[in-house]
Design a protein around this nucleic acid. Structure first.
Lengths: 101, 101
DNA sequence: TATAAATTTGACAAATTATGTCAAAACACA
DNA sequence: TGTGTTTTGACATAATTTGTCAAATTTATA
């Protein structure tokens, strides 16, 4: 299970691109991209979307990795992390079901 | 499935306490407690802990409700909400497993 | 109904967190 | 060593959270 940062780094290194180039495309300083790849920063949603387009990978896959990372960050250090995630899941299912009607 | 706000409201009304009193205990303006009970604001972790003690209910139960609410807020509007929650769950399980060693 | 208590609302302020820049340090390697 | 790349940390700016306050609304009751 690769982290989002790792995935991005692999994609970039496969194309042998320096941080500078990809960062310029994202319109941010390369320092941030470095931190993102190393998992010291979370990218914004918009950055993830841009990266998916740039590397031609499924946007949804990257977004799921991104969002789950954010959730992980939210529950880290909490004993009830798993329980909370499961309850949240139930709530989402409940909400989705009622929306369909 | 009661929301956290609703749970708190019920606890307060059972004791026939005005917002003012509980808010004072939490050291916040009653306006905020009103919003919390109505689900227009999320309480802080500290406030939840205080409320559990105040109403003598299991801290963990309230915290799970609180944390799952935050997660829900984080994924709302996202199509991949459920998927992201499930992936996050896997990640938590993975992390927990490796911590034990 | 009148009025007092309780609650809700919205405009605004303060505090916190997220996002970014920049420059210097560390690294890779011909 | 010299060049290009990456990493780090101090700092600035932007966005979001958390809170106050006062007025408006609702609820209870004399």
């Amino acid at each position: 299970m690769d982290s989002l940062g790792n995935t991005i780094r692999k994609l970039r290194e496969d194309k042998e691109l320096p941080l500078r180039t990809v960062a310029a495309f994202l319109d941010i300083d390369q320092a941030i991209l470095s931190k993102i790849e190393r998992g010291h920063r979370n990218p914004t949603r918009e950055q993830v979307v841009k990266l998916a387009a740039y590397f031609k990978v499924k946007e949804n896959d990257l977004l799921v990795a991104w969002l789950s990372d954010k959730l992980l960050y939210e529950v880290e250090d909490e004993d009830m992390a798993l329980k909370a995630l499961q309850v949240a899941e139930e709530k989402v299912k409940y909400i989705t079901k009622n929306k369909k009607k």
